[in-house]
């Protein structure tokens, strides 16, 4: 049976992991490659590396990191952050990434999703959607959640899939960083709409939250950062827990 995926997310700035971690015995806690390898050994199903570097110059540092990840980690990984052109995408995949995550550039020019999926295949194109609830609507925000687009999240999810996105990474900005749990209402509304995998993001604080994102939000995969980085939850423990609720996981 196809298992639900657990995906740690690493924010990388100028080639270094931004958030601290509780992992012991790391030679260098700031090295995203070492941290990624540690998660992989613990049983992570995939990894996401988000480049939050500010300058173009630093992006070559990120690409170099992607090459190092590909050399040392034998599970699939996605890279995102600052990908603006098909050429950027090809470079990231050539460096060894399996998928790219598109966000602001796709909102600025939706045909970018078509061009990307035609060039590298839908299976390698993840559309990341940052969502904020405003009254009764779910709205899409851009530029790392700093600017509203006025777009409706459900419509954008559907459009993204129609244009060729092979997977959706749905982040609830309302929940992100709160540890109050994922926005399961949002997740299940999107799961009802599209027939590609949905990755839940934003709000994880406990194992129950992960369980609920899968059972109530019907997410295919669950992404989290701080609960893993700070050691609140260890991946093997989380997977045992999910299995006790008959959720298929790779153990």
């Amino acid at each position: 049976m196809l298992t639900k995926r657990i995906i740690p997310c690493l924010d990388v700035k100028d080639g270094r992991t931004v958030k601290g971690t509780n992992f012991l015995n790391l030679r260098d806690a700031g090295d995203p490659v070492e941290l990624g390898a540690r998660y992989s050994e613990e049983g992570a199903d995939e990894l996401v590396f988000l480049d939050i570097s500010a300058t173009l110059e630093r992006r070559s540092t990120f690409l170099h990191m992607v090459e190092r990840v590909a050399e040392s980690i034998r599970i699939p990984f996605t890279v995102g952050g600052g990908l603006r052109t098909v050429d950027d995408i090809v470079k990231a995949l050539d460096a060894g990434a399996d998928k790219v995550s598109l966000n602001s550039a796709a909102l600025a020019r939706p045909a970018f999703i078509n061009e990307a999926s035609q060039r590298v295949g839908s299976q390698s194109v993840v559309l990341a959607i940052d969502v904020k609830r405003i009254e009764t609507r779910w709205t899409v925000w851009t530029k790392a959640g700093t600017e509203p687009t006025g777009r409706d999240a459900l419509e954008w999810a559907q459009e993204g899939v129609n244009r060729g996105a092979g997977e959706l990474l749905v982040t609830s900005m309302d929940r992100d960083g709160t540890t109050r749990g994922y926005d399961n209402e949002l997740l299940s509304a999107i799961a009802d709409l599209v027939n590609v995998p949905v990755i839940a993001s934003g709000g994880a604080g406990s194992m129950e939250h992960v369980r609920d994102a899968i059972l109530i939000g019907r997410a295919d995969a669950v992404l989290a950062a701080s609960i893993f980085h700070y050691g609140t939850i260890r991946i093997p423990q989380l997977k045992q827990y999910l299995r006790s609720y008959s959720i298929p996981v790779r153990l």
């Binding site: 049976m1 196809l2 298992t3 639900k4 995926r5 199903d45 839908s122 299976q123 092979g166 997977e167 027939n195 590609v196 995998p197 295919d220 995969a221 790779r250």
Partner: peptide
Amino acid sequence: AALKVPHMGWND
């Protein structure tokens, strides 16, 4: 037709 495609992830 209800299957999510691609079949993506870890399976036994």
